[in-house]
Write a protein that binds this DNA or RNA. Structure first.
Lengths: 329, 329
DNA sequence: CTGTTAGCGCTTTCAG
DNA sequence: CTGAAAGCGCTAACAG
């Protein structure tokens, strides 16, 4: 019932190796035969068996995208589904499939990644730089697995796609300063994430550029309660803050806004800016300036870098730093 | 460098067929040998080559999840990333991998699906019932491909996982009625989607049960402009509406809220309920009753039904109708 | 340019 | 219970 390369070869009256070459666009086939074979395959709707191809050529034909545990949260989910879609699209245009690797309840990806690699299920990986332990990364590098980071790893120099965190933060902060805000505080995510540091750096730069000396930074994990506590502390220590820059997106910003509203009854003359963009910001009744990340572009770029790596070409760049878009109020 | 079953067999001093049996838990191996082989494989960190297994056994070891084009939108993305995560988790617990099939810019999935099937890249599919053309579905059925719908197809009777649309809509509407609302209108999504019909049916039932005769339904596609127009029309024709039930989630609800706010300056005494739940609803300053869908459960159930199908067992149920959770104000 | 010949690593009869 | 042998469908030398 299922068509194999043998049937095609027989019908075309050639050897199957010829069919293989014709189909794979390799040289060593006369133009006439190639066209004939291609047409025949098309007519018969022949698609080579992926497993057989994979086994014989030692390439699986698919790439893996490693999701962070976070992706279950709706806001983070919005981020990742955009990336997934973009990667899938790019993958298909390279004739690859996309495999999703998602951490289990234990949040440990090392096992699944190793397994999928050892079993030769994927030819390469895209993974988020923050959510990975160093040991796994060094294994990947040692074993010479093609992979690309989304975000940058603080410890490892490797192919990566990131947004310009510093510039974005600088832009938001500068904007608040230009609006006459004098006491612009910063609510920051975990201090050990590189992007947190970069965004804080941008914040500081902008303050300096604006000639503002005052600054205040409060760090918090991504746990709701801690965010609340951090903000309360910030406002208690500095009651006369007139603007706030929130470094992180996702659910973090909801918790922050939540706490902010509880602490300050009147936000009408208070500047808020966030390093992330969601449409519902427009519905909150308070102006929120924000940075929008080019999600699809992140996925596309990461994928195409990965395919360069897989196909043995030298990727265009090592570290992509994509521009963000500011929406200012 | 790479370990194969031959090495294991050699080291264990048995035939590779014995190793295969031991590893796959098949009978025909003495307990002693099995344990020994298992231990050896474990120690050597041997993982069978997936492609070889797939080729020999004619099972790819992965399943496909077909995303709708919608998934790029952030709110829909939130939905799908939860489902993806759940499916991936369930898949891994069955030793399957998850492949993502996402439509290209042309929004046509027929080609990719057919290709992945013909190439034997996947052993089964999960797909959303609404976003698929009838021809593709009938092909799947004819070719006897194991697949499960998320949502229900109006035309095809097949394995599916859905939420109880009618009950959810009924619950929301009844709640508004119980709050003394007398003129509860309904803003509905596309009329040809089954879930739209079911939710409207629930809406009508609740009105009837509450002894309310008045009703008004306005349909709209998911295009921003149309939603706005539909709502304007609704309010123009029925200025004294005192509550609104919105049948659809995703970006639809944002557009609807948007238009609603523009049309009605005072929403303080206006009931709103939505068949979908997002945390930011809490931040809008207006109470919104809503139905929360069990996203993870949808994914898990769809996946486990699919695995029953693939593994030749009879799935527990044909149509799963999962309960939703109401959040009422 | 074309066809023949070996495998890729695993599963699966089928004898022993 | 065990092992030898025959493929699964394709790619990749290597002759011709």
């Amino acid at each position: 019932m299922k068509l194999t390369i043998n049937e095609i070869a027989e019908l075309a009256q050639v050897a199957k190796s010829t069919v293989s070459k014709a189909l794979n666009g390799q040289k060593g086939v006369s133009e006439g035969k190639r066209k004939f074979i291609l047409k025949l395959a098309e007519q018969l709707d022949y698609h080579p068996n992926a497993s057989a191809q994979a086994l014989a050529s030692n390439r699986s034909g698919s790439v893996g995208l490693v999701l962070p545990h976070q992706a279950v949260y709706s806001l983070a989910g919005a981020y990742w589904s955009s990336v997934i879609t973009a990667v899938a699209l790019e993958a298909r245009s390279h004739n690859y499939n996309l495999m999703i690797l998602s951490p289990g309840l234990d949040d440990d990806m090392a096992g699944p990644i190793e397994s999928v690699l050892k079993r030769r299920n994927v030819d390469g990986l895209i993974l988020s730089a923050e959510h990975l332990d160093a040991r796994t990364v060094s294994t990947l590098i040692l074993e010479d697995v093609p992979f690309v980071f989304i975000g940058r790893s603080p410890s490892v120099q490797h192919y990566s796609v990131d947004v310009d965190n510093e510039a974005g933060a600088r832009c938001l902060t500068a904007h608040m300063a230009s609006k006459g805000r004098k006491r612009i505080a910063c609510l920051a995510g975990p201090a050990d994430y590189l992007y947190t540091q970069q965004r804080i750096s941008g914040y500081r730069q902008a303050l300096r550029d604006a000639g503002l000396e005052w600054s205040a930074i409060e760090y918090s994990s991504y746990l709701s309660e801690e965010i609340s506590v951090a903000l309360i502390r910030l406002l208690a220590q500095h009651p006369n803050i007139d603007a706030l820059f929130i470094t992180a997106g996702g659910e973090f910003v909801l918790d922050a806004i939540d706490a902010l509203r509880r602490q300050k009854s009147d936000l009408s003359d208070f500047g808020i800016s966030v390093f992330d963009d969601y449409r519902f910001f427009d519905y909150l009744g308070i102006p929120i300036s924000r940075i929008r990340q080019p999600l699809s572009q992140i996925g596309t770029t990461a994928a195409s870098t990965l395919f360069s790596l897989i196909e043995g070409e030298k990727p265009e760049r090592l570290d992509w730093v994509l521009d963000t878009e500011a929406v200012l109020y």
